[in-house]
C-alpha cells in the first residue's frame, strides 16, 4: 500500500553536537527504511535553543557526545522536560543511545562523587566506573514476542542500574548496562535506551522496523510493513554473532 500521504516526523536532537560514533546512522536507517516503502518522512533537526513540540513528533533520536557537549545538551533539555515527559507518556517513539540514554535517568554520579541530575523520566541511575566498558556486544531482545539477536559496539564508563523498568535486552556477549547483572539498556512504553553504537538501527533492521510500526500505530495507521531485502544486514550480523558466540549460534 503506497503511503506517500503519510508523513512521519523524525526529530534529530542536536545533530551537530551529538555526532559521536556514527550515531547519526540511526536516523538514516529509520528514514531510508520508511522511504524504501513509500512512507513519507520529514527530518526535523533541533539545535540548542530551537523551539520544538515533541508531542507532534513521531520518532525522536537522542545520541551521545563528549563530556562538554553532553553538558550543553543537558542544560538545553532540562527546560524541555515537561514537554518530553508528556510526549513519552503519549507513546512517542524514542531511541536514546549512550549519553542520551544516561540523561533520561535519575542521575549520573561522577568519579569524584558529584551527582549530576538527569531528566528523571525513567527509573534508573548511572555511576562512573573505574574503567571503560569497551567492545562488541550481542544482546537478545524480544520484539513483538519474538527473540531477536541484536549486535553493536559499546564504549562507556558509566554503569547503569535499572529500577522498576524493563531492560532493552539480555546480554549474550559483552558488558551491557554495568557488566554485572546481564541487562542491556532500558525500555519504557515506546522509549528504547541502549549503550550500543554501531550504529544500532542500520545493523538491526528488525528493530528499526519495529520502531517504524510503533510510530505508525501511534498515529492510528496500519502498521504492517512491506518486507525488504535485508540480506546485507543479515550477513553483517552473522559475522559478528559467529565471532562472539561461536559457529552455529548465529
Amino acid at each position: 500500500m503506497p503511503r506517500e500521504s503519510v508523513l512521519l516526523k523524525v526529530c534529530h536532537l542536536y545533530p551537530d553536537l551529538l555526532n559521536l560514533y556514527g550515531d547519526r546512522g540511526n536516523v538514516m536507517a529509520f528514514v531510508r527504511r520508511c522511504r524504501w516503502r513509500g512512507i513519507g518522512v520529514e527530518v526535523v533537526a533541533v539545535d540548542l535553543g530551537d523551539e520544538v513540540d515533541f508531542r507532534e513528533m513521531d520518532f525522536l533520536f537522542l545520541g551521545g557526545g563528549s563530556d562538554r557537549e553532553q553538558g550543553l545538551m543537558a542544560r538545553d533539555l532540562v527546560r524541555r522536560r515537561e514537554c518530553l515527559r508528556e510526549a513519552i507518556e503519549d507513546g512517542l517513539v524514542v531511541l536514546a543511545i549512550c549519553g542520551g540514554y544516561q540523561l533520561l535517568g535519575r542521575y549520573y554520579r561522577s568519579a569524584d562523587g558529584r551527582t549530576i541530575p538527569g531528566l528523571d523520566l525513567l527509573d534508573f541511575y548511572t555511576e562512573a566506573g573505574a574503567s571503560r566498558l569497551i567492545g562488541n556486544v550481542a544482546v537478545e531482545v524480544v520484539i513483538e514476542g519474538e527473540r531477536v539477536k541484536v549486535t553493536g559496539f559499546e564504549n562507556h564508563a558509566g554503569r547503569t542500574y535499572l529500577g522498576r523498568i524493563a531492560p532493552f535486552g539480555r546480554v549474550l556477549a559483552g558488558h551491557g548496562n554495568n557488566g554485572r547483572d546481564g541487562t542491556e539498556g532500558a525500555r519504557y512504553k515506546n522509549v528504547f535506551c541502549s549503550y550500543l553504537h554501531g550504529p544500532l538501527l542500520p545493523k538491526n533492521p528488525r528493530l528499526t522496523d519495529h520502531l517504524i510500526s510503533l510510530a505508525l500505530r501511534r498515529r492510528g495507521l496500519p502498521a504492517e510493513l512491506t518486507p525488504l531485502d535485508d540480506g546485507l544486514e543479515a550477513a553483517a550480523s552473522e559475522v559478528m554473532l559467529r565471532r562472539l558466540l561461536g559457529p552455529g549460534k548465529a
Binding site: 546512522g25 536507517a29 553483517a236 559475522v239
Partner: peptide, 15 residues
C-alpha cells in the same frame, strides 16, 4: 576485510 559486510550495509544506506 574482516568487516566487509558492515561496509556493504553502510553503502546500502548511503543510497
Amino acid at each position: 576485510g574482516q568487516r566487509g559486510e558492515e561496509m556493504a550495509v553502510r553503502l546500502k544506506y548511503a543510497g
